[in-house]
Amino acid sequence: MADKVLIVDDEEMIRDLVKVSIKDLGVDTYEAQDGVEALEKVKEVKPDLVVLDILMPNKDGFRVCSEIKENPETSGIYILIITSRDTVLTQIALKRTGADDILFKPFDPKELKEKVKKGLGLF
């Protein structure tokens, strides 16, 4: 079965870009526009990896990340955070919330692809 990737970002353009970037990986992609929707989709779809933006309405990425990781059912999901916030605080907060990796915007799509590969454990 193909891996499932959930893409969470409030910008459609960014979601499309991410989709295009990981197109070659042959994964199934799902999308969510905000934090609340993201959690619903996680419950519904049970993805293997979530590409997660931070600055979103209705629950920011940090909280989503925390909640996913704290829930034993979903704590195994690999979370890759993409965000434009680059302060150290973000790094520390990330460690606390348990995210697995981070990528800063604007990013190189190739880099994103590599990180998703890694997160999914693909060769």
């Binding site: 910008e11 353009m13 960014i14 870009l17 295009v20 970037s21 434009s84 915007k105 604007p106 990013f107």
Partner: peptide, 10 residues
């Protein structure tokens, strides 16, 4: 950065 992401990425 969001539009930058789009520009650079695409």
């Amino acid at each position: 950065r969001t539009p930058m992401t789009g520009i650079k990425g695409y």
